[in-house]
Amino acid sequence: MNKWTKLSIEYANQKSYLDDLFHVYPTIPDGIREINNKIWGNAQKAFKSKNNKELLSELLKLDLFPIKESYIAYLKRDNTAIERNPKTVNRLCGRLYEMGLDKIYERCSEPKETNRQIGPMFKDWLRNKSLGIDPVDIDTFTSNNKDAVLDASDKAMMDFAKKELNYNRDKGLDLVARFNKKHIIGEAKFLTDMGGHQHTQFDDAIATIEERNVKAIQIAILDGVLYIPGGSKMYKYVSNEYMKHNIMSALVLREFLYQL
């Protein structure tokens, strides 16, 4: 097994892993979502006048629709479907009237799911000088061969890696760095559960480190449930099929980089 994967598994199972990981991913839910007052005012009027089409049209403009329902995504993307599907409109509005305005407002203003907030946290952690150096902009990064961490958007990192490092995936990166004159690229994921979308995230990170002919050390900075020993697919992958890949926790990343 890769030394750094082994260290990550040991860290997760023997030390204060979650307490320490909170410094990287401080998953504190936001407060309630802000709701556009004009949209909400229009929705209130439509609700009180029982104008189904208007009520649905206004609520679909909000970030979060108050009902979890398979047809909502379609209606959000094609508002003209409201005119063509009166039974669906009436069915949804029946549920809305049953909920009442207070409950509708409560649902529409619920905090974002924690998973949707995780993305920027890794880069925020890097900006806190957690790797011992301040991340730098692209001009500074390319001006010399000193140890450096690139501070840029996922896309800008991807563009740099494509141009300079023969990286060919159309997928943004979370880390582009240079230590001991060696370039390192990688994706960072906090895998909060097994299966579903989380497994897709895992596969995405693996695809980056399996990209061929890249002129950089490829790593997957993964944290979460994959390090729990047992029968899960992710644990089996990191301890068997992908055991030679550079898969590691963010909590051992600094040591990995400085030993290159």
Score class of each variant (00 low, 15 high):
residue 126 L to Q: 02
residue 126 L to N: 02
residue 127 R to Y: 06
residue 127 R to I: 04
residue 128 N to A: 15
residue 128 N to Q: 14
residue 128 N to S: 15
residue 128 N to P: 00
residue 128 N to R: 14
residue 129 K to P: 00
residue 129 K to T: 14
residue 129 K to D: 12
residue 129 K to S: 09
residue 129 K to M: 11
residue 130 S to M: 04
residue 130 S to D: 02
residue 130 S to A: 14
residue 131 L to I: 02
residue 131 L to N: 01
residue 131 L to D: 01
residue 131 L to K: 03
residue 132 G to E: 06
residue 132 G to A: 08
residue 132 G to S: 11
residue 132 G to Q: 05
residue 132 G to P: 09
residue 132 G to T: 07
residue 132 G to K: 08
residue 133 I to D: 08
residue 133 I to L: 15
residue 133 I to M: 15
residue 133 I to S: 11
residue 134 D to L: 14
residue 134 D to P: 02
residue 135 P to N: 10
residue 135 P to M: 06
residue 136 V to K: 06
residue 136 V to S: 09
residue 136 V to N: 09
residue 137 D to N: 14
residue 137 D to H: 00
residue 138 I to K: 14
residue 138 I to S: 08
residue 138 I to P: 06
residue 138 I to G: 05
residue 139 D to C: 03
residue 139 D to P: 01
residue 139 D to T: 07
residue 139 D to W: 04
residue 140 T to V: 12
residue 140 T to F: 02
residue 140 T to D: 08
residue 141 F to A: 06
residue 141 F to L: 06
residue 141 F to N: 07
residue 141 F to M: 05
residue 141 F to T: 09
residue 141 F to Q: 07
residue 143 S to D: 09
residue 143 S to F: 05
residue 143 S to A: 13
residue 143 S to Q: 06
residue 143 S to P: 03
residue 144 N to H: 11
residue 144 N to I: 02
residue 144 N to Y: 05
residue 144 N to D: 15
residue 144 N to L: 04
residue 145 N to E: 09
residue 145 N to T: 05
residue 145 N to A: 04
residue 145 N to W: 04
residue 146 K to G: 08
residue 146 K to Q: 11
residue 146 K to W: 03
residue 146 K to T: 10
residue 147 D to F: 03
residue 147 D to M: 03
residue 147 D to Q: 02
residue 147 D to P: 03
residue 147 D to S: 10
residue 148 A to K: 15
residue 148 A to Y: 07
residue 149 V to C: 09
residue 149 V to E: 12
residue 149 V to P: 11
residue 149 V to T: 08
residue 149 V to H: 10
residue 150 L to G: 13
residue 150 L to H: 11
residue 150 L to F: 13
residue 150 L to T: 07
residue 151 D to T: 03
residue 151 D to Q: 08
residue 151 D to S: 15
residue 151 D to H: 12
residue 151 D to N: 15
residue 152 A to P: 10
residue 152 A to C: 12
residue 152 A to L: 10
residue 152 A to S: 13
residue 152 A to D: 13
residue 152 A to K: 08
residue 152 A to R: 08
residue 152 A to Q: 13
residue 153 S to L: 06
residue 154 D to Q: 14
residue 154 D to G: 09
residue 154 D to T: 07
residue 154 D to P: 14
residue 155 K to H: 09
residue 155 K to Q: 11
residue 155 K to S: 10
residue 155 K to G: 07
residue 155 K to Y: 12
residue 156 A to V: 02
residue 156 A to M: 05
residue 156 A to N: 10
residue 156 A to C: 01
residue 157 M to F: 00
residue 157 M to N: 00
residue 158 M to C: 02
residue 158 M to L: 00
residue 159 D to N: 12
residue 159 D to T: 13
residue 159 D to S: 11
residue 160 F to H: 02
residue 160 F to N: 01
residue 160 F to R: 01
residue 160 F to T: 00
residue 160 F to P: 00
residue 160 F to E: 00
residue 160 F to K: 01
residue 160 F to C: 00
residue 160 F to S: 01
residue 161 A to K: 04
residue 161 A to Y: 04
residue 161 A to I: 01
residue 161 A to E: 03
residue 161 A to R: 05
residue 162 K to E: 10
residue 162 K to F: 04
residue 162 K to W: 06
residue 162 K to M: 12
residue 162 K to G: 13
residue 163 K to F: 01
residue 163 K to Q: 06
residue 163 K to R: 08
